[in-house]
Design a protein around this nucleic acid. Sequence first.
DNA 1: TAGGTATTTAGACAAATATCTAAATATAAT
DNA 2: ATTATATTTAGATATTTGTCTAAATACCTA
Lengths: 92, 92
Amino acid sequence: MSKYLTNLVNKVFKALNDQTRREILNLLKEKDLTAGDIAEAFQITKPSISHHLDILSQAELVTYRKQGQFVIYSLNTTVLDDLMKWIITLKD
Amino acid sequence: MSKYLTNLVNKVFKALNDQTRREILNLLKEKDLTAGDIAEAFQITKPSISHHLDILSQAELVTYRKQGQFVIYSLNTTVLDDLMKWIITLKD
DNA sequence: TAGGTATTTAGACAAATATCTAAATATAAT
DNA sequence: ATTATATTTAGATATTTGTCTAAATACCTA
């Protein structure tokens, strides 16, 4: 596995090792959402959610675009394919 | 997703969020190994490896059997299927 | 430009985690 | 029985992590 992929897998597992972050991904599965929309779905503060979004972003599990004052987050499934490859490699 | 599966996925992500534990799984992919054999493949102490094996075992990623003084660990790929299901659910 | 809304950054803190050494347990061999 | 080998458990410690509040930044609107 390339060093880039090893590093990415590392970040992906780190990102997925948190219930809140996994739920954020599930929300984004339905539709793109602003940071504020995401924060409202949880009991924790906006700065905490912002931090979670940063970790998801570092793992390339989400992307974001700015739209005026808003930051809109989207699920990025590309990395999930890499993750699946990692798992399949372990299986065979 | 059932509560059992949620709990298991939680433990699996926790278990996989560590380079050493992921490498242990890769070793076990080739063949079953004793705790001692596994420990020798790393720079860290036996008690630390024992702890990692415990976490992998809790996540059902490995199984073990006793053979005399030895404890032989095996990879359990069943859980990897559950993990793949979780990922696929996120994708579609 | 001033004030309002959306989001992130900075810094602090408690809880979780990876690691270690020392001791305990279990089995084998002499 | 005693000693040696394999492994785990217990307890300590430094680092990482998730969360918070307060402050900063960015953009919009009147």
